[in-house]
Design a protein around this nucleic acid. Structure first.
Lengths: 304, 304
DNA sequence: ACCTAGGCATCAAAAAATTTGATGATGTGA
DNA sequence: TCACATCATCAAATTTTTTGATGCCTAGGT
């Protein structure tokens, strides 16, 4: 099982640097060693793996072979693993540092990220967290090419190398203006609103979800207004232009322009949209990402 | 992020060997190097990590410090990762070798393991697969202390460091003797069998599940017979001693003693038991385990 | 209390490995 | 064709690792 591994961590690091720089000379400068050190290290690595990793273009740098490219991808995880190991050992077990990039679905981010980031940087003051916000497709892309390690999004069919872990659910609810005839009710059914004008929160996947909700009750609802801006939707409702269905609830029921909306639970038996954490299956998460995931679970699991 | 890592793979391997042998001398013999080589390697590792890993008991071997113990656990994963990396690179990407230990819930194993093992060893002739069969608690224990990497079981609340991935579901069904009044039916409700004697398949968790199924229909059923042997249950039914509820279906409806049972779908809206793959969260699966998981998904996902 | 045996640390010397700087080989682009 | 940039190779220098010898420490036997 083990034992027949004779490469060294230094060789691996030199190769990774050279491969990413497409140049041994550049890599050598970056690593503050001589060019020949890089050259021999890469050769030895290739020899001990019995695989050619780089193609030498004589006057114009390097390029990766197919095998080299696959290897580099694995190698990056491995080197990150090595760094993690060192940090773990140094007893920096508690205080994390470095940078973590996560993805977050656009409409989710204002509700989740502030609390998550605040809590996380409180626990780990030296950790820099950065978010990529976007639609599901963009997040999937970012996960696949390694721009971010984790992404918070709604449950979706994702490409095979990705998995998800359900973190919480976002139950849909109705908002109506304060003067609305249902404003004092404890809850409402979609069918009861069939005659009211509908304001659609119009984002790629949310759109289909909200429309399917209204469709599932047998009522065919045509939106009177649409907006891809969450606050615009709320203001339209506050100003009596109709009702809307949303599934993230700000703490306050006041809109930007000072209006008010009333929040009503949906009485229809609808399935709430699961909020998941997506990441590359078969890949090891860094300690930073693990901490983020643990924090998501801790913070969001309880609020059913 | 990276860079401040100066230990070498050799140092790590020497330390791991010494820690597991509780002796540098023994480790040195095992590694075919001198005792002082191991001693200095460990010292250097401790120095570069700035952590004491081993306590030297002068006349009687070594023991791990708390930090050393945590580190060793991480280290084993890391060294496995290194081996994986080497194999990946050598283009042995397709042909896996070595040993894989998985766990499997007792009542599940005769239905799943033969096909999984057969398929897997066909793809990877050099891979030795071994199974630990047991109850949920035993499997959980085995996963936690690293006796197996993966376990196939029914969905359960597991200890925090474990996660699950749903692989398939096991829908419950009814078996009755061939002469039974419902034998020609297309399906049956539990309530319709309220007067019939019930044969309970009596295994720790399955027991509670089957009893809750009958309870959920409002009928209180007392089992007339119980057996923890799957084939005994089937033979009892074949011999007209009552009906039973099971959720794994052998290909043949013939029992060991030549009798016959008739399989009927349950018409009650019951929730089928999910079959999951459990493993340590936050831990990287070896390529062997990844292959097994992929094979489970491939083989079982399709059968609804 | 005093040996003794087993086990780890340490040291200088030897061996192995890595790195360097110089040089050579090879293709690119003007 | 010529300069130029890039990688490979070589011997020497340097660093790291290993070795074998030795010393120190403690548990356990007498």
């Amino acid at each position: 099982m083990a034992g027949d591994v004779n490469f060294t961590l230094v060789q691996l690091r030199y190769f990774a640097t050279a491969a990413e720089a497409c140049s041994m000379t550049a890599a050598a400068q970056q690593l503050r060693v001589s060019q020949s050190a890089v050259s021999t290290a890469v050769s030895q690595l290739e020899h001990s793996l019995q695989v050619q990793l780089l193609i030498r273009h004589h006057a114009k740098g390097l390029s990766l072979t197919a095998a080299g490219s696959r290897f580099l991808q694995e190698l990056k995880n491995f080197l990150a693993h090595a760094d993690d190991l060192a940090e773990t050992a140094r007893g920096l077990g508690t205080r994390l540092s470095g940078e973590l990039v996560i993805g977050c679905f656009l409409s989710l981010s204002p509700f989740l990220l502030p609390r998550l980031f605040a809590g996380l940087t409180e626990q780990h003051p030296d950790l820099r967290v950065q978010a990529i916000e976007g639609e599901t497709e963009e997040l999937q892309e970012a996960l696949l090419n390694g721009q971010c390690e984790l992404a918070l999004m709604y449950e979706m069919d994702l490409a095979e190398p990705l998995t998800t872990e359900q973190i919480t659910v976002a139950p849909p609810y109705v908002i109506v203006p304060p003067r609305h005839r249902f404003a004092r009710r404890k809850g409402v059914r979609i069918a009861e609103l069939a005659e009211d004008p509908f304001v659609l929160y119009d984002l790629p996947h949310s759109r289909e979800y909200f429309m399917s909700l209204t469709a599932s009750t047998g009522v065919s609802v045509q939106p009177r207004y649409r907006s891809s801006n969450y606050e615009t939707v709320r203001s339209l409702v506050a100003n009596g232009q109709g009702y809307s269905i949303l599934n993230q609830r700000p703490v306050r029921d006041t809109t930007y322009d000072g209006g008010q909306v009333v929040t009503l639970p949906l009485l229809d038996p609808v399935s709430p949209l699961p909020v998941v954490l997506a990441y590359l299956r078969n890949t090891r998460l860094t300690r930073r990402a693990q901490a983020f995931a643990a924090f998501c679970r801790e913070l969001l699991r309880s609020e059913d």
